Simulated scan of single mutants.
Amino acid sequence: MPTGKVKWFDSNKGFGFLATDDGQEVFLPSSALPAGVSTVKPGTRMEFGVAQGRRGAQALSVRLLERTPSVARNVRKPAEEMAVITEDLIKLLDGMSNGLRRGRYPDSAHGRKIATILRTVADNLDV
Protein backbone atom coordinates (compact mmCIF):
# COMPACT_ATOMS: atom_id res chain seq x y z
CA MET A 1 0.00 0.00 0.00
CA PRO A 2 1.29 3.51 -0.73
CA THR A 3 2.17 5.88 2.08
CA GLY A 4 2.27 9.65 2.28
CA LYS A 5 1.51 12.75 4.32
CA VAL A 6 -1.56 14.94 4.57
CA LYS A 7 -0.98 18.17 2.60
CA TRP A 8 -4.17 19.77 3.91
CA PHE A 9 -7.60 18.68 5.12
CA ASP A 10 -10.73 20.77 5.67
CA SER A 11 -13.22 18.99 7.94
CA ASN A 12 -15.95 21.51 7.06
CA LYS A 13 -15.67 20.67 3.36
CA GLY A 14 -15.09 16.99 4.08
CA PHE A 15 -11.97 16.48 2.02
CA GLY A 16 -8.30 17.25 1.56
CA PHE A 17 -5.22 16.00 -0.26
CA LEU A 18 -2.34 13.67 0.46
CA ALA A 19 1.17 13.83 -0.98
CA THR A 20 2.51 10.36 -1.65
CA ASP A 21 6.12 9.53 -0.90
CA ASP A 22 6.81 9.60 -4.65
CA GLY A 23 5.32 13.11 -5.02
CA GLN A 24 1.83 12.44 -6.42
CA GLU A 25 -1.29 14.16 -5.10
CA VAL A 26 -4.18 11.98 -3.95
CA PHE A 27 -7.69 13.20 -3.10
CA LEU A 28 -8.66 12.39 0.50
CA PRO A 29 -12.41 12.28 1.20
CA SER A 30 -13.56 12.20 4.83
CA SER A 31 -15.31 8.89 4.10
CA ALA A 32 -11.87 7.25 3.69
CA LEU A 33 -10.78 8.19 7.22
CA PRO A 34 -10.81 5.47 9.90
CA ALA A 35 -13.87 5.15 12.14
CA GLY A 36 -13.90 7.80 14.86
CA VAL A 37 -11.53 10.13 13.00
CA SER A 38 -13.19 13.25 11.58
CA THR A 39 -10.17 15.39 10.80
CA VAL A 40 -6.42 15.08 10.28
CA LYS A 41 -3.63 17.63 10.57
CA PRO A 42 -1.17 18.46 7.81
CA GLY A 43 1.92 16.29 8.05
CA THR A 44 0.11 13.24 9.45
CA ARG A 45 1.59 10.09 7.89
CA MET A 46 -0.88 7.62 6.40
CA GLU A 47 -1.05 4.36 4.53
CA PHE A 48 -3.87 4.11 2.02
CA GLY A 49 -5.29 2.32 -0.98
CA VAL A 50 -5.67 4.24 -4.23
CA ALA A 51 -8.43 4.08 -6.82
CA GLN A 52 -8.78 6.11 -9.99
CA GLY A 53 -11.85 8.29 -9.75
CA ARG A 54 -13.41 10.66 -12.28
CA ARG A 55 -10.94 13.38 -11.33
CA GLY A 56 -7.84 11.36 -10.63
CA ALA A 57 -6.35 9.33 -7.79
CA GLN A 58 -8.49 8.97 -4.67
CA ALA A 59 -7.51 7.50 -1.30
CA LEU A 60 -9.41 4.50 0.05
CA SER A 61 -9.24 2.74 3.42
CA VAL A 62 -6.79 5.10 5.11
CA ARG A 63 -4.74 3.91 8.08
CA LEU A 64 -2.97 6.43 10.32
CA LEU A 65 0.71 5.60 10.77
CA GLU A 66 1.61 8.45 13.10
CA ARG A 67 -0.18 11.53 14.25
CA THR A 68 1.55 14.89 14.01
CA PRO A 69 2.48 16.01 17.52
CA SER A 70 0.64 19.09 18.71
CA VAL A 71 3.07 22.00 18.89
CA ALA A 72 0.54 24.01 20.89
CA ARG A 73 0.24 21.30 23.53
CA ASN A 74 4.01 21.29 24.03
CA VAL A 75 4.27 25.06 24.50
CA ARG A 76 1.00 25.97 26.19
CA LYS A 77 1.01 27.68 29.55
CA PRO A 78 0.37 25.77 32.80
CA ALA A 79 -3.27 25.71 33.94
CA GLU A 80 -2.52 27.79 37.05
CA GLU A 81 -1.02 30.56 34.92
CA MET A 82 -3.97 30.42 32.50
CA ALA A 83 -6.37 30.82 35.45
CA VAL A 84 -4.72 34.14 36.38
CA ILE A 85 -4.70 35.31 32.75
CA THR A 86 -8.37 34.36 32.37
CA GLU A 87 -9.33 36.30 35.51
CA ASP A 88 -7.50 39.38 34.19
CA LEU A 89 -9.20 38.93 30.82
CA ILE A 90 -12.62 38.86 32.50
CA LYS A 91 -11.85 42.16 34.26
CA LEU A 92 -10.63 43.68 30.99
CA LEU A 93 -13.72 42.57 29.08
CA ASP A 94 -16.01 43.77 31.87
CA GLY A 95 -14.49 47.25 31.64
CA MET A 96 -14.84 47.21 27.85
CA SER A 97 -18.49 46.13 28.08
CA ASN A 98 -19.28 49.10 30.33
CA GLY A 99 -18.00 51.43 27.61
CA LEU A 100 -19.98 49.58 24.95
CA ARG A 101 -23.15 49.98 27.02
CA ARG A 102 -22.54 53.72 26.91
CA GLY A 103 -22.20 53.56 23.12
CA ARG A 104 -18.41 53.79 22.96
CA TYR A 105 -16.07 51.31 21.34
CA PRO A 106 -12.52 51.16 22.70
CA ASP A 107 -9.97 53.22 20.79
CA SER A 108 -8.01 51.29 18.14
CA ALA A 109 -4.85 50.81 20.24
CA HIS A 110 -6.85 49.46 23.20
CA GLY A 111 -8.98 47.32 20.88
CA ARG A 112 -5.83 45.78 19.33
CA LYS A 113 -4.50 44.91 22.78
CA ILE A 114 -7.76 43.24 23.77
CA ALA A 115 -7.86 41.29 20.49
CA THR A 116 -4.25 40.13 20.97
CA ILE A 117 -5.02 38.90 24.49
CA LEU A 118 -8.16 37.09 23.27
CA ARG A 119 -6.20 35.35 20.49
CA THR A 120 -3.47 34.31 22.91
CA VAL A 121 -5.96 32.81 25.35
CA ALA A 122 -7.80 31.07 22.50
CA ASP A 123 -4.55 29.62 21.12
CA ASN A 124 -3.68 28.19 24.54
CA LEU A 125 -7.10 26.58 24.91
CA ASP A 126 -7.49 25.24 21.35
CA VAL A 127 -5.19 22.22 21.04
Rank of each mutant, 00 (worst) to 15 (best):
A79C: 14
R73M: 11
E80V: 08
K13T: 08
S61W: 04
R45E: 06
K77Y: 13
R63V: 15
A122I: 05
S38R: 15
M46E: 00
R63H: 14
L18H: 05
L93Y: 05
F17V: 10
E25P: 07
V84N: 09
I114E: 08
L65A: 07
E87S: 11
P69E: 11
A72R: 13
L64K: 01
R45Q: 06
L60N: 10
H110G: 01
L118D: 02
T20G: 14
G95S: 13
D126S: 14
L33G: 10
M96P: 01
A79M: 15
R54M: 10
G111H: 06
I90E: 11
A109K: 14
L89V: 05
H110N: 14
M1A: 09
L28C: 03
E25N: 09
M82T: 10
V37F: 05
Y105A: 14
I114C: 05
T20Q: 03
A109M: 07
L65D: 14
V40W: 07
W8R: 04
Q52M: 15
G53N: 00
D22I: 12
L89I: 06
V75K: 09
A79L: 09
G4R: 02
R54N: 10
K7Y: 01
D94M: 02
L92H: 11
D22K: 08
A79D: 15
S31M: 07
G111R: 08
G14R: 00
A109I: 11
G23K: 03
S11L: 09
T3L: 02
D123H: 13
K91S: 13
R63Q: 12
Q58F: 05
L33Y: 03
A79I: 15
L33K: 02
F27P: 04
T120A: 13
P34W: 03
K7C: 01
F27Q: 02
P106E: 02
V50H: 11
P106W: 05
L18N: 04
V62P: 07
P106D: 00
L125A: 06
G53D: 01
D22L: 01
D10P: 01
L100S: 03
A115R: 05
M82L: 15
S61G: 03
P42A: 10
F17H: 02
L89M: 15
T86R: 13
P78C: 09
R76Y: 10
M96Y: 11
K41W: 06
S70G: 12
A59C: 05
T44V: 14
W8D: 05
R67L: 15
T116Q: 10
I90Y: 11
N12L: 15
E81I: 08
V121G: 00
K91E: 14
R54W: 13
A72N: 05
L118E: 10
R55I: 01
P2S: 08
L118H: 11
A32H: 03
D10E: 14
V75G: 11
S11K: 13
H110W: 13
K13H: 00
L64A: 02
R119T: 09
L18F: 11
D88N: 14
G49M: 01
K113A: 05
S30E: 02
T44Y: 06
L92F: 07
G23R: 06
R54Y: 11
P78Y: 04
